[in-house]
Amino acid sequence: MSDTAATFTQDRQKLEMAALSAPAVLFTVAMIAFPVVYTIWLGFQTFTSTGKQSFAGLANYSKLISDVEFWHGLWITIALFVLSLALQLVFGVWLALVLFHAKRLPGIVRSLFISPFMMPPVVAGMMWLVILDPSLGAANYILQSLGLPPSDWLASPTWVIPTVALIDSWQWTPYVALIVLGGLQSLPPSVYEAAQIDGASPFKTFQRITLPLLLPTIVTAAILRSVDLLRFFDIIYITTQGGPGNASNTLNIYGFRVGFEFFNIGYASALMLTLTAIVFGAVLAFNRLRGAVAW
């Protein structure tokens, strides 16, 4: 076959492949792009309580700057994000180390350790709502049995965010542990053998070898959890609906209420796009960090 004929065949094959995959590509792009473009468009509209719509330009975004609830929601979102992520990374690494070293732990126990994240968040929320009920819940019963004072848990403006962070950490720490466990299993054994020969203590080995080598994996887990934590909705909605007062009114909860309870879809879209920008920013920052700690 001549070169020209071969090139023609290759071009034709490429064209056929492009034609065959085009519907799937177009469908996927449309499914992703349409909601985003529509939300951006909605962000420039204003809706009255009766659903009447008009073009508002940047009014929703300028309203956002002067909206006390927005800044409060942002603060709550960040506080919950930092607290939950810290808890999940610390305990996730610890749990991964336990599972890695306790090799003779029965499979059923290992499965139990990692089972919470398989539970739908709505079910987890309902379960913790019952456990943490200040009057009827098991948590206060246990505290009082131990001679400790009861807590208002989710009903206390002071404790609601730490309590929600604890619930989320209970559910998602095993997920972080599973990712870290994968990282641990891929670490080169030769480094540990060298450390052992040099007489390094277990703590020094963890501090100087395990942790630095695990950092890329931990950052990957942090990225995955960050996206979820900044979009955190279900457990708060089930347990507190943003209360007491507005003590757990994250941006997501606030946006939902503005959109679906007060019907101001335009302003809710502006809120959610701002949150999306924050999520992108966090992911980019963690990606840079991952690049810095890669080995």
């Binding site: 200040p134 009861p150 208002d152 209360g243």
Partner: peptide
């Protein structure tokens, strides 16, 4: 009222009353 009443709606109220508390 009960502790944590700021999170009370019909589910919690009915449960508390039904349980005799």
């Amino acid at each position: 009222g009960p502790p944590g009443v700021v999170n009370y709606s019909f589910q919690q109220i009915s449960a508390l009353y039904r349980s005799g508390r």
